[in-house]
């Protein structure tokens, strides 16, 4: 059951990342990988909210596995994040490569804190 919940969540999260990436890219013609940035920030916000809800006793283990480990885990990605950073650096966009890491980590952390604070405001 637990495995099925993780897999079901991920089978929605991964294509959601792909479709978001495509939609964002077709609207912005820049070298900066805004698509991956968007899903990583959104997923961190949602996981912060879910983890906070679980701490407050408002989210079951099943919810955590389906939406947290499965959906948020697959919606966000570290492999694409690091590969994009490498390609930006190799293309001579050293500034964008460094900015991608700094902005990605800062915004992801901010989102996780915001999600946790929201959960605290709602359920605690």
């Amino acid at each position: 059951m637990n495995w099925l919940l993780v897999i079901a969540g991920a089978m929605v999260g991964a294509p959601l990342r792909y479709l978001t990436d495509r939609a964002v890219q077709s609207r912005h013609d820049t070298v900066f990988p805004w698509g991956t940035f968007t899903v990583n920030v959104a997923g961190s916000l949602l996981l912060g909210l879910i983890t906070g809800a679980a701490t407050a006793g408002a989210a079951s283990t099943h919810t955590q596995l389906l939406l947290g480990t499965g959906l948020c885990g697959a919606l966000t990605t570290y492999s694409t994040f690091s590969y994009e950073t490498l390609r930006l650096a190799e293309n001579g966009d050293r500034f964008f490569a460094a900015a991608n890491v700094a902005a990605g980590v800062a915004a992801g952390l901010g989102a996780a804190f915001t999600g946790a604070a929201l959960a605290h405001a709602i359920w605690a």
């Binding site: 991920a10 999260g13 991964a14 990342r17 792909y18 990583n40 997923g43 961190s44 949602l46 996981l47 912060g48 983890t51 947290g68 480990t69 948020c72 885990g73 697959a74 919606l75 966000t76 990605t77 570290y78 492999s79 694409t80 994040f81 990605g104 980590v105 992801g108 952390l109 989102a111 996780a112 804190f113 999600g115 946790a116």
Partner: peptide, 27 residues
């Protein structure tokens, strides 16, 4: 590429757990 790069590796790695783990360790 969609299957292995976007799917398998994207689903295997995670940014959200990384971010919330840091937030929890701090709190």
């Amino acid at each position: 590429r969609p299957f292995f790069g976007t799917g398998v590796l994207g689903g295997f790695t995670t940014f959200s757990t990384y971010a919330t783990d840091i937030q929890r360790l701090i709190e």
